[in-house]
Amino acid sequence: MSWHQYQVHTFDHVMHGVYKECRKGGDKEVTGMLIGRPCVWNGKHYILIKDFFPLAVDSSQVHVTVLPESIAEAMAKVSSQYPEDLVIGWYHSHPGYGLFLSDTDLFTQRLIFREWFNVALVVDHLRNEHGFFALTPEGGYYRMSHIVWRKT
């Protein structure tokens, strides 16, 4: 099996943690950062997501605003705990309304996460669904293939 064909690789502890944060938020949106790095193997690029950091937010059912001090705190944690890695993307919840990037999500993605290796993880914890998304060169977005690993 050519596992490196999958565009995003992550681990069960990351997904369980992100789901737990989303469920804590209930019907309000939550968001956070994804930590990892872009990798290449046998000529194929893939994104490896190793951890996540939740961010303190001011949110409602349909919007989420990240508090600037929360970003600063997360960035400090990333540089101290994962000096080799970077903020590879972000996650946020869509409680009950499915997997897609809204106009506001796209705006955020284009503004902050516009590199080729940046991903957006959308979690609908009420429907138990999640998907990874990235920008297309034309400015739209597409759903990336992903695989979640568990240590045996």
Partner: peptide, 15 residues
């Protein structure tokens, strides 16, 4: 960009 293989069996299993 890190040149490394992705996680794979038997050390990891896809869930």
């Amino acid at each position: 960009v890190s040149r490394q293989p992705p996680p794979n069996p038997p050390e990891y299993e896809p869930i």
